[in-house]
Design a protein around this nucleic acid. Structure first.
Length: 425
RNA sequence: GGAGAGGUGGCCGAGUGGUCGAAGGCGGCGGUUUGCUAAACCGUUAUACGGUCAAAAGCCGUAUCGAGGGUUCGAAUCCCUCCCUCUCCGCCA
């Protein structure tokens, strides 16, 4: 959501941002609507002033026992005008809100131009791709051969895009989640949180999934939505709050399941557990002072990278181009892990600075020290990291010729000392 | 799920349909007094939007007493719907 005053002051900057997003300029249309709305609002307020004064006079007249029929008739006229102005104001405000609520955040100045992922820029890589003296297999081949990943069983229960894990692979999945959340809480200063997995409309509006992207989500019959990411409940914890400046930054993390309908992803990543309707993810959210959110984004990305470094995984960090970013983001770093079975880098984490875009939608503010009034906080979110995809990465990178999988040292304490997953284990 | 009670400012807590953005208290901030602290006293202390202004400050106005409707010249106060909290009963991980 945008600040109308900002659009009034810098309509060109606003339009340039939209253009970089691949959208037509809107400033003229927005400002015309805004001008009309303010005109009607002023008229309505004048009427309200008159009505309030007249009502007050009626009250006084009645107390003195005088007849107030004349004033009452006058107010009746004012009320007719007011009803009309109110209807008009509401319609215009609604139109303006709908228009603004559907527009994505504008890219930051250091975000590369481009329409899609082909314009993303690689900033750095870490480690090297492992070399095998055999043909590397994909995770689902490995998992099925071990008897520990069962897509047919999952299809029987729930259809496609689900998996059943068993035995040591199931435990490895749990071990990864434990390892990540321990890392972020004990070394990175994030507070462990268990939020609701079912939320109401306004919560998804706050983070930007609604009103435009309801098709990507699952909804219950009694009007709850299943969260597509813990970003949604975690960020909304500060909705409608006015925080003290010294409470910032607020850093929270959560391990939650995530639910996505994957509408529009038909035929994409259909094999294996790369793209599922349900997956676990450790999420980090920071609520930051506006002057320090750029640094906070770097810090958060480093926290996510640390997970992969401790696991000995090869990855690269890319900055998303203007056209590839999510709706609410002003700047996004993706971390892409190397998958030997696919011979490709695949996204395993996405860290975004949303600046005040979400804060404005959810009315999350703070009191700047020594200043009057309030300002909107900046919100950031990042995966730290996606558990299912990390499982895939460990399996493919640590596979051996016989189809067994070595367990990275960092995870062994979480596996009861187990060092290898083999078919009989 | 059934029965009942209730949602007021940062917090506690008054509020009879009329001058109530809302008494009082606590807390916060500023000041007076004081060798220092404490105490006492005085003042101040919501948010959003609009108008005025080059802009800020200031000033003027409007709205907001859980949310949304309604009644009324006028609603924190009356009516309806929804949300939430608490108590009791039932069920239950």
């Amino acid at each position: 959501m945008f600040d109308l005053k900002w659009i009034r002051d810098r309509p060109d900057e606003f339009d340039r941002g939209l253009t970089r997003r691949g959208l037509p300029p809107m400033a003229a249309q927005v400002l015309a609507l805004d001008a009309r709305r303010r005109q009607v609002q002023t008229r309505l307020q004048d009427l309200q002033t008159k009505r309030n004064e007249a009502s007050k006079a009626i009250g006084e007249a009645k107390r003195r026992g005088e007849d107030a029929a004349a004033q009452m008739a006058e107010v009746a006229n004012i009320k007719d005008d007011m009803a009309a102005a109110e209807g008009e104001e509401r319609a215009l405000a609604g139109e303006l809100d709908d228009l603004l609520a559907g527009l994505p955040n504008v890219p930051g100045p250091d975000v590369p131009d481009g329409a899609d992922e082909s314009a993303n820029v690689c900033l750095r890589t870490h480690g090297e791709a492992p070399r095998f003296d055999f043909e590397a297999r994909e995770h689902y081949e490995l998992g099925e051969a071990l008897g520990m990943m069962d897509f047919a069983a999952a299809a029987k229960l729930s259809g496609s895009r689900f998996v059943v894990m068993r035995g040591a692979v199931a435990r490895l999945h749990r071990a990864l989640a434990q390892f990540m959340i321990d890392l972020h809480t004990t070394e990175h200063g994030y507070t462990e949180t268990v939020p609701p997995y079912l939320v109401r409309d306004h919560v998804l509006y706050g983070t930007g999934q609604l009103p435009k992207f309801g098709d990507d989500l699952f909804r219950t019959t009694d009007d709850f939505w299943l969260i597509p990411t813990a970003e949604v409940p975690l960020t909304n914890l500060v909705a409608d709050e006015i925080l003290d400046a010294d409470a910032l930054p607020i850093r929270v993390t959560a391990l939650t399941p995530c639910f996505r309908s994957e509408a529009g992803a038909a035929g994409k990543d259909t094999r294996g557990m790369l793209r599922q309707h349900q997956f676990d993810k450790v999420e980090m959210v920071s609520i930051a002072h506006p002057d320090r959110s750029d640094d906070e984004l770097e810090r958060m990305t480093t926290c996510a990278e640390t997970v992969l470094q401790r696991l000995g995984l090869h990855y690269r960090v890319v900055v998303l181009s203007a056209g590839d970013m999510g709706f609410a983001a002003r700047k996004t770093f993706d971390i892409e892990v190397w998958l030997p079975g696919q011979e490709a880098y695949r996204e395993i984490s996405s860290c975004s600075n949303c600046a005040d875009f979400q804060a404005r939608r959810m009315k999350a503010r703070f009191r700047p020290a020594g200043e009057k009034g309030t300002r909107h906080v900046h919100t950031l979110n990042g995966s730290g990291v996606a558990v299912g995809r990390c499982l895939i990465a460990v399996m493919e990178n640590y596979q051996r010729a016989d189809g067994s999988i070595a367990i990275p040292q960092a995870l062994q304490p979480y596996m009861g000392g187990l060092t290898v997953i083999a078919a009989d284990g």
